[in-house]
Computed example of a mutant assay.
Amino acid sequence: MSGGDAAIATESAVADDFAGDVVRGLSQPVKRIPSKYLYDARGSELFEAICEQPEYYPTRTELAILDDHRHAIAAAVGSRPLVLEYGSGSGIKTRLLLDALDDPVAYVPVEISASALDESVADLAVRFPDVEMLPLCADFTRPLRLPVAAREPASVLVFFPGSTLGNFATDDAVALLTVMRGEIGDAGAALVGIDLQKDRATVEAAYNDAAGVTAAFTLNLLARMNRELDADFDPARFHHRARYNALAGRIETHIVSDADQRVSVAGRRFDFGAGEGVLVEYSCKYSHQGFADMAARAGLAVTQSWTDGDERFALQLLRPRGVPA
């Protein structure tokens, strides 16, 4: 099977999952849709725009951490790693990492958006001609069959920046960290970005930017369902809501109905009450100890941590528990 055919097959499977997951999610007493479906081509573009908003601190803070500590991170990882990145996106952070690492053998980006994957790999292949590019168009939350690099790596480094782990409920995050533990073996490591706990005003502003880009990103899911699932949502009758749940330590983002209404999706009818929300994303904020405790449940230990001066964000290096670093 050619690379193009593989991408088409993967995208078809994703589309089938989209319909099933949406119908199941909207059939629940508390409606919800997995956050991964926010990232179609338009959603990915809007997310890149979110990262440029003045209220959205995570991206620029993490980039600064990578830039400031890249040599220490490279020394901690060691030479000749294979870099496996979950949800590679535009690849801006990847450029900083690959540039710092000592003789990276190969780069395996796992990305659900074929267009985003193609663009980032094309750019990285030019910038890093000695690094084998092995893109994988897939959903990283599902079992993966990883490609084999031409050169034998000394270790595997899972790179999971952007605080994306915070989009998962705790048990699901532990499950994903457990998958990482399996991917890295005993010699590898995982470099994970986490958003740290801070005051409510700062957190809520990041998910309710004044320009309305985050709202457009969230509501784009309605347009995607209209286009791909033969739905008849009227986006003007819904709004974006992102609030900080202090008890759970996370932002909870909903698409909220402005009125009682009935909507058709994939041949099914769903009733929405006025003020009823569809949960589309969690964004968990961690303490250092809370994250370490969660990683321990997956058989991982935080061996090194890099943060900014204001303690807004952190990059955590994880290794298997009980295995010498």
Rank of each mutant, 00 (worst) to 15 (best):
A76G: 01
A301P: 14
Y244N: 06
V302E: 08
L134N: 09
A169G: 14
K93L: 03
N220H: 11
L46M: 02
L124Y: 05
G87F: 03
G185K: 08
D234P: 06
D230P: 06
N208P: 04
T141F: 05
R32W: 09
D232Q: 00
A100Q: 03
G309R: 12
L98W: 02
T218I: 05
D232G: 02
Y56I: 07
G3L: 15
A149Q: 04
G87Y: 11
D171I: 14
G78C: 07
T202K: 08
L26Q: 12
P147Y: 00
C284W: 12
A125E: 11
A190G: 06
L63A: 08
F291E: 07
G185P: 09
A122C: 11
S113G: 05
L300G: 07
T178C: 04
H254S: 10
V213F: 05
Q289W: 13
R70K: 13
F159N: 02
I255Q: 05
V179E: 15
V77S: 01
G322Q: 01
E52D: 14
D293Q: 15
G299M: 08
S35M: 07
A246I: 06
I33Y: 01
R42T: 15
S115D: 14
K31L: 00
R127S: 09
E52P: 11
F313R: 04
R60K: 14
A116V: 09
P29S: 07
A325G: 13
R312S: 09
Y107P: 07
R145G: 10
G275E: 00
E252R: 01
P161R: 06
S90L: 10
Y244W: 14
N226F: 02
G193R: 12
E52F: 13
L222I: 08
R237W: 08
D232A: 03
V110I: 08
D234T: 06
V203G: 03
E204R: 11
T164I: 03
R268N: 13
T170D: 14
